[in-house]
Amino acid sequence: SLPPLPPQLKAIQHYLKTATEHDKRDPVVSYYCRLYALQNGMEIDKKSPECRVFHVTLMDYLEKVKKETDSEAVHNEVVGQAHMENYALKVFLYADNEDRASRFNKNVVKSFYTAGMLFDTLSVFGELSEDIEKNRKYAKWKAAYIHRCLKNGETPV
């Protein structure tokens, strides 16, 4: 288990949560969400002792996962990228279909939100393509928009 998340690393909290949510459903997604969180966390702060302890613990965990798994998508990042792109698109298309069928609920908000974060994690493989960048922004905007409408009792357009 990880030590408590230092406040300065709050920005990576949701990616770690998404990783936990996928531990049983899709360990490849969990692995890359945590790798993204680690990489981003190190960019935010790798100097303070509390952040260093957090990063080292997360690194230990990822090394252990990689040693123990025989998943090609974890060992080969090209395969991993394809896996993550397919999965993110699947979540995005589910939310988009629900949206276009005017089925608005918390599940659709969560799916758009998760898709947006999964598109974020694709940056561990390099610069995002134009299409993915477009979907990433759209998914985040849609999640916020439908959430706001549901909260205010309005019907999303």
Binding site: L35, L38, Q39, M42, K46, V56, M59, K67
Partner: peptide, 28 residues
């Protein structure tokens, strides 16, 4: 000053170690 220098060197060594471990993890 030498203590500060040593601390800085130690801190940067630890930072490098983290980055190196990350790079190694991705090549494993």
């Amino acid at each position: 000053p030498s203590t500060v220098g040593q601390s800085t060197a130690a801190a940067s060594g630890e930072q490098d170690e983290l980055s190196q471990r990350l790079a190694k993890l991705r090549q494993m």
